[in-house]
Amino acid sequence: MTRLNLKVNGKSHSVTADPQSMLLYVLRNDLALRGPRFGCGLGQCGACTVLIDGAQARSCVVPVSSAVGRSIVTLEGLGTLDHPHPLQKAFIQEQAAQCGYCMNGMIMTAAALLKRSPNPSDERIKQALASNLCGCGTHLRIVRAIKRAAREIA
């Protein structure tokens, strides 16, 4: 076990963890965050997605030691109920959820996409989310929500 400093959602946190353990576990269990979700532990489904230095990352396969000194943003860091990020607002407006478990990964991946490509086509959005899984079949609403957010940001 090692003492590590992490910068999450703009704040510095000191945690004691096995440096080889995955970032997701520290975010959820040590920092009590609910945005990043455990889905597969294999980097296959995207439910655990966070932004590391602005780029999307699957926190279930990122050793916590490699996240030290970098800027980590989770769903909580994007916005709040009172001040939601345009993507969060758009997901609410489009009712883009059934169980909602995958939504974190969809929003965080879309946040990274909109930084690279502020006005993406449907096809571009679908390609960007091709490795984010949704079991309930909410895909159409998710694409609509991302387009709506892109319009609002632009």
Binding site: L33, R34, L75, Q88, K89, F91, I107
Partner: peptide, 9 residues
Amino acid sequence: IPEIAVGKF
């Protein structure tokens, strides 16, 4: 849905 979207749910 609002709480899910901001990670409070």
